[in-house]
Amino acid sequence: MTRRERNWLLVAPAGAWFLVMLVLPLSFVFVFSFGERGPAGGYVPAFTLEQYANLPARWTAFKNTMVLAPLGTLAALLIAYPLAYQLAVRTDPRWKTLLLVLVIVPFWTSILIRSYAWIFILGGQGIPALLAALGIEDVRLIYTPFAVTVGIVYGYLPLMVFPIYVALDRLDKRLLEASSDLGARPFATFWQVTLPLSVPGVATGCMLVFILLMGEFLIPALLGGGKVFFVGNALVDLFLQSRNWAFGSAVAFTLILIMLVTVAIYMRLIARLQVRRDDVAIM
């Protein structure tokens, strides 16, 4: 076997995976998006741009997704960063593994069950009941955009914590000493050294969370009470309820395009911020 052949052999499984799991379904989606819905639903071959012309009918879903996905990512970041920082920088190495495991433990349970737990926590007999006991009446939490954000942050926190943790953990602690030695106060050190050097981790975490949020449907359905409508929910309805495969494909393909464009712009921005070429995203 030549070296070249061996290389091909090595990438073959990944290549096959890509073909079967990505290229093939995407091609279907692409072709379907130019078709029509059958009288009882499904797909009828055709070549029409009608489905794309119909996209404005899902404008609100796109708008909600494009607003809540970045917001949810930001909220997850704001909560995950201090947590990752504490774990990576402040925690005794002996406890790190244990605490990291605790961060993923919730992932061992289905998101469905965890979201149901939140329905009870945020529902009338959960936090609002506690608040009522303290004299704060009539607080509505469940089935609001707030509840969706809570669910998103909760659900995606580990995905954000881990890359940031890795970045902070790899950070050479002597750089922090050097900064302090050169007269920087702790906060100045954080701002000028720790934060910029954790950018790759932050970028990876944001990317992971953002991409998954763009396709999210479960959390808005469960914690948004059906009133917070993401593109993901529109897709579930189009494929599983109204069985409009053609329009569903057009929506799905548009979502994928938006994701690609957003990710590309984002990569650009990060690359500009990026400090070391060899550090570029651990993805």
Partner: peptide
Amino acid sequence: LTDPNRAELLARFKSA
């Protein structure tokens, strides 16, 4: 059940 307009109506209602 199969009327596409009713399906679209519900989608508009849910995303309103």
